[in-house]
């Protein structure tokens, strides 16, 4: 049986209860092409059932909801199934399974969580703000995982005096810090009026980027490993018509 959920935590926990005794259960929040004859059920989130499941799981592992939180933020289409296998193992063993690193279900969950937390760390570095005429900062992002709002605490802590918008242009939503409050809101597209100097600072950054490189030591494979090409599109250092000129050493 395939159990479709709405992608929320309550939806997952409700489906978890329904599917727990089903040997061939498959959980998903993504509409997929179904093989002929596969039985499906849409599980509506039920707060009572979800609370029951949560209490039970927490009694086995008090930190497990943190795992679920990150798993459901994953951009992988089989995230619910990965979470299901992990929590089924937890429910079977009735004690924390996080350290059972030789178990397939734990390996998959750990890798999935690591992808999310690693992308959060990466984005702390890769986000590029542009300054608008009002002084507010705006950064378009297109992360693999649904993490826009999870980036806010980091930037709020270091730029408390600057309102900013982190715009997930793929999921069409924005995480906003208005100088006092933090909230998320749907956002299709944004028209930004740039500050007078914004383009000049971007040009200086491009110049810096080109100058600090050691062209004689080119190692593009390593570069792309650390900073995959999919992250480049919102970075001004790559916003150039022609490839980087080879700077001649002074």
């Amino acid at each position: 049986m395939i159990y479709f959920t709405d992608g929320t935590k309550e939806g997952f926990l409700t489906a978890f209860l329904c599917a727990y005794n089903d040997e061939d259960a498959l959980l998903s929040s993504v509409q997929t092409q179904l093989a002929l004859g596969q039985a499906t059920v849409f599980v509506a989130a039920d707060p009572q059932k979800a609370a029951k499941a949560e209490a039970r799981l927490l009694s086995y592992d008090k930190d497990c909801m943190q795992d679920l939180f990150y798993l459901l933020r994953s951009g992988m289409s089989d995230r619910e199934q990965i979470a299901f296998r992990y929590f089924k193992l937890l429910a079977d063993r009735k004690r924390p399974v996080r350290g059972m690193l030789a178990e397939d279900g734990v390996i998959a969950a750990c890798e999935c969580i690591r992808k999310v937390t690693y992308e959060i760390h990466r984005m702390h570095g890769f986000v590029r703000f542009m300054e608008s005429a009002s002084g507010a900062l705006y950064a378009p992002i297109s992360p693999d995982n649904d993490i826009a709002d999870l980036l806010v605490p980091h930037f709020r802590a270091r730029l408390p005096e600057f309102p900013f918008v982190l715009h997930d242009v793929v999921r069409k939503k924005a995480a906003v810090y208005d100088g006092t409050n933090v909230f998320t809101a749907p956002l299709q597209s944004a028209e930004i009026v740039l500050s007078a100097d914004e383009k000049k600072w971007q040009a200086l950054w491009q110049r810096y980027y080109a100058s600090v490189n050691l062209p004689q030591r080119e190692r593009l494979k390593q570069m792309r490993g650390y900073m995959p090409v999919r992250y480049w599109k919102h970075m001004p250092e790559f916003d150039r018509q022609e490839p980087f000129p080879m700077e001649t050493p002074v």
Binding site: G125, R158, V212, M227
Partner: peptide, 29 residues
């Protein structure tokens, strides 16, 4: 810590970009 103004420390360090030589840009050198 940030006590007003701009910036704070990031104990694990943070890479902001990578140049074609494979080195990271963390600081304005």
């Amino acid at each position: 810590k940030n006590s007003g103004g701009m910036g704070n420390g990031y104990p694990s360090g943070c890479c902001h970009s990578f140049t074609p030589d494979g080195r990271c840009i963390s600081l304005l050198k």
